[in-house]
Amino acid sequence: MDNILEVTNLHTSFYTMAGEVKAVNGLDFSVRKGSTLGIVGESGSGKSVTMLSIVKLLGTNGKIKEGSILFNGEDVVDKKEDYMQTLRGNKIGMIFQDPMTSLNPVLTVGYQICESLIKHKNMSRRQAEKKAVELLSEVGIPDPKNRLNNYPHEFSGGMRQRVMIAIAVSCNPQLLIADEPTTALDVTIQAQILDLMKRLQSELDTSIIIITHDLGVVADIADEIMVMYGGNMVEKGSTRDIFYNPKHPYTKGLLRSVPNPDKLIKEKLIPIDGQPPDLLNLPKGCPFSPRCPNTMKICLMKNPDLMEFENGQKARCWLLNKEARAKGKVI
């Protein structure tokens, strides 16, 4: 079996006062053992919800409506909470997007790192503390021994994020899911964290899913990239294919939006105009159609299927369908 994770036809919704928020709509993807998948996409496109679905932390109003999630070949969708607890923080390491809410404010940082080592790895408190000091220094926290006794609020935002990373890698997970792990960090520490993740991967064959808005980060660390928009994948391929041969207009627009710092004369940035779709009322056709520069009639009527190319690249766009393209008038 070469896939550590296989997600098929995943539908996840939140039930709110205003109605059903369809955060993920029929997502299919897999992660090869020992490889790194980068996920990029619109804010609100369902990246975090996808990750929370995998570890089943959707809160009281969230629900996986349909689909399967195979971790090591075993479907977790119908598994009970106590089974999930043996995975979380152990076989699956998680770095959440918001470090403020995922650290417990009334427990010391040291206690929180040691907790999972004691629980999952049967370490004594003394062993766990020694390991915790090592971990904190690996993520670049100065004076780690003394810092163990600090509470989260005594750390800066970036330092809290690094504590989360230390906890996530502490039990040598088979799958590390990192949701914006480096957004609050400066580039030197970011580079150090990415190196740590690469090292973990080469030493322990860890598989990694990294969610980020920073295209530089995925260019550096990802083997494959998945691009999400409006609750689904719109494109997936090898990192080189996505950067050098993007197929979907959203992917193309993303790549164009990045400033080029080598230019001496300032040019205006090229954003994609318009706003992300409303998940309470998804458009009938392609969710990107209201912002797409190439929208055709059919795009407004029907969401395109995923097209697969010989190189394994996949994209969901009517422009890639020869027939639709021949018939379709750009509107």
């Binding site: 990029v40 804010s43 914006e180 957004t183 959203y250 993303l254 939006s257 990045v258 994609i272 105009d273």
Partner: peptide, 12 residues
């Protein structure tokens, strides 16, 4: 920093 780059470019 919390936004995708196409929206970052809009805001900038």
């Amino acid at each position: 920093s919390a936004l995708d780059v196409s929206i970052q470019a809009q805001i900038i």
